[in-house]
Amino acid sequence: MTRKRRRLTVVFLGGLMLSTAAALVLTAFEDSIVFFHTPTDIATKQDLQKDRRLRVGGIVKEESWRKKDDGLTHDFLVTDLTHEIRVAYKGIIPDLFREGQGVVVEGRLLPDGTFRADEVLAKHDENYMPKEVAEALKKSGKWKGSAVTGTPDGDKPYGDKPYGGKSYGGQKESAQ
């Protein structure tokens, strides 16, 4: 019995120390673990403004997307609803790219404040539904602040939190 209890204690304490260590490491390296920075990060964090490759994520602002006739040169605003950043990109954009949807762009920040992207990734949100349902929801006004339409429920379409990889709807996910 005492042996079993001792093994139990060792496993428990080991697990506790391991989780603490993991939590510390993950917190320490948070800046390299994040896949992208928000326009607010770019505006506020000095070291992000240096000339280096980085990724910026946010929502393609409604009615900001312009493309030239060649179909390859794109220009749009990426916003986290607090700050926005102008992105210039030449290349093929993914299927899910649209105004009001999430996007992650990779490239460099130019001195004039625009972002020259050489890669554009569409970020999908966590909502799955048939087309008819999406349209019915929009019509009835029950569309809860998804990034898709930009028809907000109130002034803060994406919830209180600025966009930052959290739920677009500002709704909390439950712990599983």
């Binding site: 799955y128 048939p130 990889g165």
Partner: peptide, 29 residues
Amino acid sequence: IKFSVDWWNTLHQPASVTKIGMPAVHSSM
């Protein structure tokens, strides 16, 4: 793995099925 999408900015979308509130996945799906 489970909370990576909540703790950090990721390209991967957050959880849908365990989300409280409006079902993020329509019943037909």
